[in-house]
Amino acid sequence: MIPLTWEIVARGLTEIGRLLGIIAATVVILETLAYLILYRLLRYKYALPFMLLLPALVGVMLLIIYPFGFNIYLAFSNMNMFRFKDFSVGLSYAVTNFLDVFRLPVLQKVTFFQLLGRTVLWTAVNVTCHVLGGLGLAILLNRPMRGKGIYRTLLVVPWALPQVIAALAWRGEFHYQYGFVNLLLQRMGLSPVQWLSDPKWAFVAVVLVNVWLGIPFMMVVLLGGLQSISQEYYDAAQIDGASGWQQFRSITMPLLKPVLTPAVILGVVWTFNNFNVIYLVTRGGPMEGTDLLVTSMFKAVFEFYRYGFGAAYALVIFVFLFIFSAVYLRLSGGFKGAWE
């Protein structure tokens, strides 16, 4: 055990102070240069906004764009654990890396297409349950009643808990002998389930955890959407004799769409990319039975040390996700109105 001493605190503060000092100095130098060039030399009309943007631009360049490009470069290399420093780069390596993604098992057993199928299934099941569960609860809560605030507060607890804690706690609760899931099943006269050692049940377990985690977000977002729908529409529909279901289909759903669409896109991207739940609850096991694209990529890189291959694999995943998002945004008119 290492005690937290003043020495450690002081060392940390010094290190961070130095970092902030370096960053501040860099910003000052960059801004002075930008001022001289854009304002004095070019007399550019938009000199000021560009100077305001400059720090963020440099940050995004260094930590998003450059790593992204570097990742592409790595995909053209044969870098791995044994060739960390003296790796070589060439088209032939890229061909091998990208072909390997599709023709060999990504780790030891499961192939890319199996992982893709499983990830799509995972995403579809989760987002469907999130939306249905969230919508159901939002509709129940969207009425004047006693204890509404308490219900709302308690229902968002899964979302409010730090995800790492929730995932690790669930990992313990799926323990065959001592976890509450099996204990409750036994109390109800059912037989306990091998949650973490049977691949099928392990997948059910991670889906259950993620559904539990994701419903509150959808509920809160959709409740906000429901509350913004004016009651007058429903009054008019009632006068015209519309049934509850007809009102839901012709008033609630269309008016909820501007809220639902971005929430679903976010939900899909988050779920597709979910790392914590899988990695912390099952580690992708047993026998790679719960690995998704993202966790297998992480393992290929940081447990199998196949850097070049991992970079190529990451690009393939990105392309899939990007195409999906682009198509969905185009079809649904997604973030219209968010521009101005």
């Binding site: 990742n71 790392f275 890189v301 990007f322």
Partner: peptide, 19 residues
Amino acid sequence: LLTTQMIPAGMLLLPIYIM
């Protein structure tokens, strides 16, 4: 800025790690 949110978690992990 929106597009960067679609970069898979972990995709930039390897390059940032190496940097």
